[in-house]
Write a protein that binds this DNA or RNA. Structure first.
Lengths: 351, 351
DNA sequence: TCCATCATCCGAAACGTTTTGGATGATTTT
DNA sequence: AAAATCATCCAAAACGTTTCGGATGATGGA
C-alpha cells in the first residue's frame, strides 16, 4: 500500500541504493537525480518503514517506562506529569516512549523488565519509585541494560540516577514545624521498602533528634500513598492522647486524605493541627486550607531523567551520572503559620 | 550478542526454518528434534527479535496514544488512570502502548498523527478529548487508519467511539440542583471546541429550559480544565449580583479551584453556594466539603476503548461500534443537601 | 514391485531499509 | 597520451524472522 524505496526507484529509473542515499542526504548523488527522487518521494507519499530501519540499525529509538500501579483503579497525578516530562524530552531527541503498567514487585513486572532487557524491545528504561534492594535494578545491572532511575537504592551496583534530596526535604519540613513550636509531630510514612520513604523516615528521626525532641513509636504510621490511605492512616494518630500538634503526610495525596479526616473529626487544620505534605501537586495550593508542602519539580525530573538516559544509550554518559535535586519548602496555611507564628515562632522561608 | 535462530540452528545442526517452526509449535517437526531445539533455545537465552518479527509480519502489535497536554507543566489525573486502563487492556492482548504528548491543535500534534497514519509506526490509535470538527479524526478517516475515539465529534465521517453521555450527566446534575430549589445556576464550561463541553453546555441550557428557568449569559464562564482555570473563572461569577446559588464545574479540577475561591471569599460551600463537578476523580471525595459530581469510570473507559480498537485492527469490528456510557450522580456535601434539604427539597439518588 | 502417503526437513524468498565496496565514465593532472 | 582523480551510481549483503513450496526417504497398501 504505502510507497517503498523500491517504488520510488522503479519510478525514477534508478537503484534502491541511490534513492536511499539521496533521501538520506549523501553527497554522492547528482543534484538533479536527487531532485527527481525527492519529488517522486513526495508525490508517492513516501515515508520510511520504521520497523525495517530499526532492524537494519539494530536499535529501536524507543524508551521504555513501566509504571508501578497499585491496583487497577489508580490515579496519581505524579505520573501524568512525569510522563509528560519524559515524553517531551524523548520526542525532542526523536525517541518514542513505550509505556506499560504493572503492580510493583509482581511477577508481571519482573517479566516485563526481563523482556525489556532482551535485545530489541527498547533501547533503554526509566525506573521510578526505587525500592530498597530493588529487584528491577539488580536485574538490569546484571544484563548490563541501559537505564536511569528516578531515585536511589540500597543495591550495591552503580547506576545513573536522578533523585530529589528527600532527607533535605524532610528536614525542611520538620524544622519548619519545630520552629513553629511543635514538639509532637506525627508522620504518615510511605510503605516500607520504598527508598524515598526510607530517606524521609530517617531524616524525620534525625531532625527530631537534632532538636532534642523525642519520637514516640505511635507517631509513625504507614499509608499507601493514596488519599484513602492517608485518611485511614491518620485515624490512628487522631486516637492518640495527647494528640500530635502537627502531622506530615508522606506525599500530598496522603496529606489531603489526612486533612479530610482531621476536619471530619471537627478539628481545624492549621489551627488545632498543622499538616504538611510532599510533592506540591497542583491541587495542593487549592485545598482549604492550602497545603504546606515540599515542592518537587516532577516535570523537570522527568526531563532530566530522560535526557540522562539518552546520553547513556549513546555512550555519552557523564563522569558523574548522579543528580540530586534540592527541594524547596512551600509554606501555606495548613502549617498554621498565621496563628502559631504569633506565639513566637520564627518563620522559615524557602528559596 | 543475544542468540538468534541462526545460532540455535547451528548448535543443533538443523535449518533455521526448522528452528522457527519448532519454536512456533508446528507439528511438522519430529518430537525429539523439537525437544533439542527448545532445550538449546533456553540454554542460549534465546528471545525472538521483535523488530524482525514485526517487519516480516507487517504489523507492529503496538497501539498509539497521543496525550493532548496544555503547556509543559500539567497534570490531569484523568490521564494516568486512562493510560492504566488502555495499558492493561493492551497488555492482555499482547499489544504495546506508545505514548506521546502534544499540545492540542498544534502543528506538532498534526505531524504526530500524520506520521502515525503512515504504515509501520503503530497499528492503531486512541484519540481522546474529541473536538468539534476534529482535524485529527478527519485526517485518520482520510487515511483509513484504524482508531477509536473516546468522545464523539461533529465531523460527518463514521468511526468507532466510546463516549460518556455528557448530556445525561449534565441533566442529572442540573436537575439535582433544581430539585434542591436552586434557580440561579452558574456554569464553568470547558473551553469551546471540546466536544464533551459542547454536549454539557447544550444539556445545561436544555435542562434549565425544561424547568422553565431562565439562563443569564453572565452565568456561563469558561475555564481551561485546571484548578487554576476554575479558580480564575469563578471570580466572574462571584462578582454577580445577585449571586448564583449553585455553580457547576466543567470538571472536578475546575470545581475544586472554584471551591477554593468561594471559600477565600468567605462563603460556605454547600451552604451559601452549592458546587458540583464532573469526573469523580479520587480526590473529589476528600475535599472539604466532599464534592458532588458525575462519576466517570475512566479506567473502564480506557479498557473499553482499547478493546474496541484491538477489534477494529483485527477486522472484528462489531456492527455498531458505538458505546455510550450512562453516568451516575454522586451526591456529596458540596451540593448542600444537608442544609437545603431541610427547606423542602427532595433528595435525588443516583444508581 | 510400484505407487501413494506420510513424517520430517529445508532452500529461498520476502519484509524494507542501510551500508559496504566497488564499477563506470568523464575530467583533470602529469 | 597515460595516469590519477572525481562524480555518480549500483549490486549485494546484512539485519532476524516467517512462510511458501517443495525435497527426501521411509512406510503402507495394491
Amino acid at each position: 500500500m504505502a510507497a517503498t524505496l523500491k517504488d520510488i526507484a522503479r519510478e525514477v529509473g534508478v537503484s534502491v541504493t541511490t534513492v536511499s542515499r539521496a533521501l538520506a542526504g549523501y553527497n554522492d548523488v547528482a543534484a538533479n537525480t536527487k531532485e527527481r527522487i525527492q519529488e517522486t518521494a513526495v508525490r508517492l507519499g513516501y515515508s520510511p518503514n520504521i520497523t525495517a530501519r530499526r532492524l537494519q540499525k539494530q536499535r529501536t529509538d524507543t524508551l521504555g517506562f513501566i509504571m508501578p500501579t497499585f491496583g487497577p483503579r489508580f490515579s496519581d497525578p505524579f505520573f501524568s506529569e512525569f510522563i509528560a516530562g519524559i515524553g517531551n524530552q524523548a520526542a525532542a531527541h526523536k525517541y518514542d516512549l513505550l509505556v506499560s503498567t504493572h503492580a510493583p514487585d509482581s511477577e508481571g513486572e519482573r517479566q516485563a523488565y526481563l523482556q525489556a532487557a532482551k535485545r530489541g524491545w527498547v533501547d533503554g528504561l526509566i525506573v521510578v519509585r526505587t525500592r530498597e534492594d530493588d529487584a528491577r535494578i539488580q536485574l538490569l545491572c546484571q544484563h548490563d541494560f541501559p537505564f536511569v532511575a528516578f531515585g536511589r537504592t540500597s543495591n550495591e551496583c552503580a547506576f545513573p540516577y536522578v533523585d530529589e534530596d528527600s532527607a533535605a526535604g524532610m528536614r525542611l519540613l520538620v524544622q519548619h514545624f519545630v520552629d513553629l513550636g511543635h514538639e509532637r509531630i506525627g508522620l504518615i510514612a510511605p510503605p516500607s521498602g520504598l527508598m524515598f520513604g526510607h530517606y524521609r523516615l530517617q531524616s524525620f528521626y534525625n531532625t527530631m533528634a537534632e532538636n532534642n525532641l523525642p519520637v514516640q513509636p505511635d507517631w509513625i504510621v504507614t499509608g499507601d500513598m493514596t488519599q484513602r490511605g492517608g485518611a485511614e492512616a491518620v485515624a490512628a494518630l487522631l486516637a492518640l492522647d495527647p494528640l500530635p500538634t502537627a502531622i506530615i503526610g508522606g506525599n500530598d495525596l496522603m496529606a489531603i486524605g489526612a486533612i479530610n479526616q482531621i476536619q471530619q473529626h471537627g478539628l481545624r487544620v492549621g489551627q488545632d493541627i498543622a499538616v504538611g505534605g510532599f510533592d506540591d501537586i497542583p491541587l495542593s495550593a487549592y485545598m482549604t486550607p492550602p497545603l504546606t508542602t515540599i515542592h518537587q519539580p516532577i516535570y523537570e525530573i522527568g526531563q532530566q531523567t530522560c535526557a540522562m538516559l539518552i546520553d547513556v544509550i549513546n555512550g555519552r554518559s557523564p563522569q558523574d551520572p548522579h543528580t540530586l535535586l534540592t527541594p524547596t519548602l512551600i509554606i501555606r496555611e495548613s502549617s498554621g503559620t498565621a496563628t502559631i507564628q504569633m506565639e513566637g515562632g520564627e518563620r522559615i522561608q524557602s528559596n
